[in-house]
Simulated assay, not measured.
Amino acid sequence: MRKSLMRMTFRQLQIFRAVCESRSYSRAAEEMALTQPAVSLQIRQLEELIDQPLFDYVAKKLYLTPAAEVLLKASEDVFGRLESLDMQLSDLQGSLQGQLNLAVESSAKYLVPHLFAAFRAQHPEVSLQLVVVNHAMAVKRLSASRDDLLIMSQVPSELALDFFPFFNNPIVAVAPPTHPLCSVERLRLSDLSDFPLLVREPGSGTRKACEEYCHQKRAHFAQLIEIGSSESQVEAVIAGLGLALLPRHAVRLELAAGLLRELPVEELPLLRSWCVVHNRGKRLSPVAQAFLDFIRVERLQISALGERFAAAPTAA
């Protein structure tokens, strides 16, 4: 091993990781509570230690060099091992401690806090770092192994992944209560196609699943209105801008309050499963392994949670 690498410090690696994450010296300085010259100095010292440049500036944008990519991967391994050591030491003391780094697709963000709360009741000293992403971003994070675990519906087949389906995610058609289709007792999916359909951005997993399903059922909507978030999508339906295909749990409060109505479409709900996913062969931290074991073992708790989130609304 090069002797110069032994002079590398954890603080330098933390600063380096902050620059990689933000792609900015100034934003990394704010995050690390340092001045920008201090960040520049630490990066320059790192470059001297590895004898290669770490960043390139092109059109005022910061890009990682091949050396930076390698160093970033090594730093993730180093800090991952330290985190695992911390958790193992805590485990030896009789309690599980540490942080679960969890990424979830946006359609699961309503469920996961309740799921983690049930897990934390067993392990009160575990904290959570939660990142909410769309499907396309989730796949990128899996490719880069950014998180301990990830919860998603459509598991990409092109990656080497281990996954465990644990929770049903029914997608239903919703409309404002004054919509003319609300007076119809029985509908086909194609009956909805004359009305505007509110959809998420192209990277959304729910949109992808619904588009594939509608194509399969030959329901072709003449007008699509793209909405950037599920919350805005719900409000747009309430406002009367169109219909939407949404996870039932995501609109459970609006259905219960009478702000929305679930349409009686014969081909719905579209049933998918949420899965907890990680890269095959990935060394899981004790906290991540405990959370995965909890999902696999606590079927009764999760089923009870599922009844609250996925139950069809009672007719008024």
Score class of each variant (00 low, 15 high):
88 Q>K: 11
229 S>R: 02
7 R>F: 15
247 P>F: 05
170 P>M: 08
42 Q>V: 00
312 A>S: 02
10 F>P: 10
45 Q>A: 14
232 S>F: 09
182 C>R: 02
170 P>H: 12
39 V>C: 05
170 P>A: 09
292 L>F: 02
16 F>K: 11
193 S>N: 00
236 A>E: 12
94 G>T: 15
52 Q>T: 10
231 E>Q: 12
256 A>Y: 02
106 S>D: 05
70 V>G: 02
271 L>W: 04
119 F>S: 12
253 L>E: 15
278 H>L: 03
301 Q>V: 04
242 G>M: 13
251 V>R: 09
177 P>C: 06
30 E>H: 01
157 S>R: 14
168 N>F: 07
17 R>K: 08
147 D>I: 03
16 F>C: 11
64 L>G: 03
181 L>Y: 03
44 R>G: 03
217 K>H: 13
114 H>T: 15
263 L>A: 05
285 S>Y: 06
282 K>C: 08
125 E>A: 12
305 L>V: 01
106 S>I: 04
76 E>P: 01
151 I>H: 04
80 G>T: 08
14 Q>W: 03
210 C>T: 14
281 G>E: 09
19 V>R: 05
302 I>V: 09
60 K>Y: 13
51 D>S: 10
178 T>G: 13
218 R>H: 15
305 L>Q: 03
162 D>M: 13
90 S>Y: 09
145 S>Y: 08
72 L>R: 06
289 Q>G: 04
146 R>Y: 14
115 L>K: 04
71 L>P: 05
68 A>E: 05
273 S>Q: 14
76 E>L: 12
234 V>G: 04
159 L>N: 01
10 F>W: 15
152 M>A: 03
32 M>R: 13
147 D>C: 06
259 L>T: 05
167 F>R: 06
303 S>C: 06
17 R>V: 07
80 G>V: 12
214 C>N: 14
210 C>A: 04
214 C>Y: 08
221 F>T: 06
35 T>F: 06
90 S>H: 06
252 R>M: 12
291 F>P: 13
37 P>G: 00
170 P>K: 10
249 H>M: 00
215 H>P: 01
213 Y>V: 04
7 R>E: 15
144 A>G: 08
242 G>D: 07
94 G>Y: 12
256 A>H: 15
231 E>P: 01
84 S>I: 04
41 L>Y: 05
256 A>F: 06
